[in-house]
Design a protein around this nucleic acid. Structure first.
Lengths: 156, 156, 156, 156
DNA sequence: TTTT
DNA sequence: TTTT
């Protein structure tokens, strides 16, 4: 009776190769971004392409599918839950928010081979944090340090 | 052809009486929060009620419906578009993000009279920012100062 | 990869007390109808209320919730899968179709006590087929005789 | 307050080249079928591909997009309204039902050139009624004769 | 009747 | 940062 509905339905293109991590307890986690593009009229009546970026997270079996089949450029359909996590920024002391889509349904729309052009290595190595995704530096670090996903964040 | 899908489907209860404002050009804007509750199992297998808060915005005709019929406690169904706005925090200089649902469909589920218990005054006056809903003070002010909705933010 | 999406999202009022049955193998099945009302403009520009009726089916745990909490008049939100079953009419020999929503998510929106007006008995007895909801008699019988849900129809 | 929700969300492949017609008043109408495929477990626990077929109808601007870009094999995402039309079968005298999805949002997922393999002619000519789509003969004719879409069926 |  |  107290059950609400919290559902996101998205169809778009993946911005970067997904980040794959594991929690302390061994749960696999995939993080990636999705661009949904729209053609809307602006104030002057012109058609403008408008792109919205979404932060997606997937766990367990869904994360494995992401790891194995989703890459930069992939077109996917996704259903998920909208979640906002918050943490206290260590340096500024301010509260920060990050909204993510917890993916629970995923459909691959690019054929095999489509999506990524580079055939070679997926060099997703080094210091790439995977959250440095809006041209912001400090926030990414901050997020990585203060708001890393822990087992407590996982809803199962 | 490049058309993506960006849709949120929410059903829950309104957290506070909506804020009603107008842009410089006279467009009416309604802002409010919605709680969607879920019963999920936690790590230890217990059923836990989990509430997610969403920031909703409505414009024009939809904003008028919100103004006239939606209040604290109202149960509503909503469809909208997920949007993240960003701005530079004036004091800390950091980039901040705020994700909102731009409502384009709304269905009232509380009967008339349901929802609000207090019959008296809707004292939506004074310093009540309507964004002080996560125990955070500064962010609300900050948001009010730095990220006020302007005509440029309105997608039509 | 070949995964499609087939989803119905409905919010409306239940037309009659649900029918509860069991398959030969003991799976509980609930069947009921849902009215979704819309206010659309007709050809002459007048606002007209338009009601669409849907046939819903629920199995197992969801069927138990329907049995225990859903009744005539209940306002509910439902997610499900659109399915069309077909059978050969015994008398006319024609192929017949029936589209149903296989419910997999259900949210009760009427408070307890709301919905049903009659306090007394839920006389869901006798010949009430539960499918006699469009002013048609024969189809209901026909359906009952020729297109009863069998274990083969259940997708799990 | 009496506003319900009636929404279908489908992603799949088009079964045949769409039928394009016009009503007496000149409204363009597109009819086509969509297959949504699912991989579910059957009773014995094996994974089985299950395909559901949907009847889609589009009007006006959406019908033009269908006419110009959608063909047999096209992968599309669609939002629409579930509608059941009924009519009296002339020969058997029985009431018949046909459930359709009235498309109001459409996204093309096949690239240009994808979808159809045959480059040549779209010979959608002759007596093809477009409703002879489930291996049934009489019903199609019947439908064509008794339940043709008229201006009265169009909800605007 | 589609698709992987 | 994606895609058409």
């Amino acid at each position: 009776m107290a059950k609400g509905v919290n559902k996101a339905i998205l169809l778009g293109n993946v911005g970067k190769d997904p980040e794959i991590r594991s929690t302390a307890s061994g749960t696999i986690v995939a993080s990636f971004t999705l661009a949904t593009s729209d053609r809307t009229k602006d104030q002057t009546g012109n058609w403008v392409d408008q792109t919205e970026w979404h932060n997606l997270v997937a766990f367990k079996r869904t994360a494995e599918i992401v790891r194995d089949y989703v890459k930069k450029g992939s077109k996917i359909y996704v259903e998920g839950k909208i979640q906002t996590r918050s943490w206290d920024d260590k340096t500024s002391g301010e509260k920060k928010y990050r909204t993510e889509i917890l993916v629970n349904e995923l459909s691959l729309l690019s054929g095999r081979g489509e999506g990524e052009s580079g055939g070679g290595g997926y060099q997703r190595s080094g210091g790439s944090s995977g959250y440095d995704q809006r041209g912001s530096q400090a926030p990414a670090d901050d997020y990585a340090n203060s708001a890393e996903i822990t087992d407590d964040d996982i809803p199962f």
